[in-house]
Simulated assay, not measured.
Amino acid sequence: MPLLRIQLDTDRNTARRVVDLHRRGGTHPESRAAAEAEVWRKGHTPAAAPIFVGITNGEPVRLIYDVEVYPAVTR
């Protein structure tokens, strides 16, 4: 299945909290839901839960998620 990379704008405090949760084996439900919503907004259907990849190092800080999507069907 193809992967769609999603970047979500956030603030540094939230980014640190998400990274800390991920390192402890947890998840950040709000950002995962936002990543899934972004996939739908782009016209794709998620095939699995978003996977946290990391954060950007610039301004604005962004959370990075990879989301497995169903391939597009063409006729």
Rank of each mutant, 00 (worst) to 15 (best):
P2D: 12
P2S: 11
P2F: 09
L3S: 08
L3T: 12
R5L: 05
Q7I: 01
D9L: 07
D9F: 06
D11I: 02
D11V: 04
R12W: 05
R12F: 06
R12C: 00
T14L: 09
T14K: 06
T14A: 02
R16K: 08
R17V: 05
V18I: 11
V19H: 02
V19S: 02
D20G: 07
D20A: 15
D20T: 12
D20S: 11
H22V: 02
R23W: 00
R23P: 00
R23Q: 13
G25T: 14
T27L: 12
H28E: 13
P29L: 08
P29Y: 07
E30W: 01
S31P: 04
S31T: 15
S31I: 05
R32A: 14
A33P: 00
A33V: 01
A34V: 00
A35Y: 08
A37M: 07
A37T: 07
A37K: 09
E38M: 07
E38Y: 00
V39A: 07
V39M: 08
W40E: 12
R41E: 14
R41G: 09
K42Q: 15
G43V: 09
G43Y: 08
T45F: 08
T45S: 14
P46D: 11
A48F: 03
A49L: 14
F52L: 08
V53C: 08
I55G: 00
T56S: 12
T56C: 01
N57Y: 03
N57L: 11
G58S: 14
G58T: 15
G58A: 14
G58V: 05
G58E: 15
E59C: 05
P60D: 06
P60F: 10
V61W: 01
V61L: 01
R62G: 01
L63H: 06
L63I: 05
I64A: 03
Y65E: 02
V67D: 11
V67Q: 10
E68R: 14
E68H: 06
V73W: 06
T74F: 15
